[in-house]
Nucleic acid binder design. Structure first.
Lengths: 195, 195
DNA sequence: GTCTATAAAGCGATAGAC
DNA sequence: GTCTATCGCTTTATAGAC
């Protein structure tokens, strides 16, 4: 971290990683200070609301990133099946093939859930709805698409939990591969011979 | 909570619930004291090792309960498909149809993971292996069974995360139903996953 | 076996110098 | 914009009365 003229935007990725690794309660200001290289004074200069504001900003940044990289393409890409494949590949990259966990999931299970309930709810709902929209464009009826999308989001989160619990990051990739097979098979073969 | 002559065994269910609701770090001794009706002195009388010992005992009790109610039947019941159906019904009951979350999953994602790594690992591995054993007895080959079991455990955990995140407990039941359909269909076809 | 009182450390947050 | 010092509170854990 730069020792001077840091900006909120520069801090967010570091903050995100600290919250991911230690949870909301576990990420103490002392630890955040170490990881950012900033003292408490500087941190409160950028985030007058303290830790709660830091976490809220991190969540907003994550939301924006996912919306841009995954949710909008899922909703809008003319080639729905390609968008689904891309989403799964991006998911694998984002979670570093199972070596990273989902901050939103961590917050959802932790004590700070109520404080960030809207953001957490919004993130999961947006992922499910965007994927369902892609599945509908790929030919599924609405009810089937929502069910499959719900399954897929749960599958991703569950594999992150299991990979962490079993200390087996590769489990995440195996799960994603099976998920891709299942999702694309459900769309049927009317895809013009792609893949 | 009885005000006198309490025993460790009486305390464990209450402790489990507090850890589930607030996580390891969030479950302060003050809160535990409130919920058990015991002062700190009494708590340290029963658990000289403090909070860490409380959580370890709770995890051991959970392990034993799952082994008895789910894992052993999965491994030993002559009717493997019935054992799988029972396991899923028991899972729904245990997690109160999505209103309860999994303490082991919470710990796996939280900061206290390393401290309880063996127990957490053991719980997930035992569930996966017991289900895989049932699937093998139901006719699947070993590799297919392990993959399906891995998927199923992740599915359950992921649905708990999603149900909590979306504040929609019913999501858990929907996921379990789809999981049951998928698992039994895999056994039902007499090719046994050998195609 | 249960309690209150208290120690020692860490927490989030603030004040004010530079 | 960054720092150090410090406040007030909560934490885990212990000591000792009953």
């Amino acid at each position: 971290m730069a020792r001077t003229a840091a900006s909120r935007a520069d801090l967010l990725p570091v903050l995100a990683e600290v919250f991911r690794e230690h949870g909301y309660e576990g990420a103490s200001l002392a630890l955040i200070g170490q990881r950012t290289g900033l003292g408490k004074g500087s941190l409160y200069h950028f985030f007058p609301g303290g830790k709660a504001e830091m976490a809220a900003c991190v969540l907003a940044a994550i939301d924006a990133w996912f919306e841009d990289a995954m949710f909008r393409p899922l909703r809008e890409d003319p080639d729905a099946k390609a968008a689904i494949r891309t989403m799964l590949a991006t998911t694998d990259t984002y979670f570093r093939s199972g070596n990273r966990i989902c901050l939103v999931g961590v917050l959802a299970l932790g004590e700070a859930r109520d404080r960030f309930a809207e953001r957490i709810d919004g993130y999961f709902a947006a992922w499910r709805d965007a994927l369902a929209a892609a599945l509908v464009r790929a030919g599924l009826n609405s009810a089937e698409a929502v069910g499959r999308a719900e399954d897929a989001v749960a599958m991703i989160q569950g594999n992150l939990v299991a990979a962490r619990a079993l200390r087996d990051p590769a489990l995440f990739g195996r799960g994603l591969t099976r998920l891709e097979t299942r999702l694309l098979a459900a769309c049927g073969s009317s895809d013009g011979g792609r893949r």
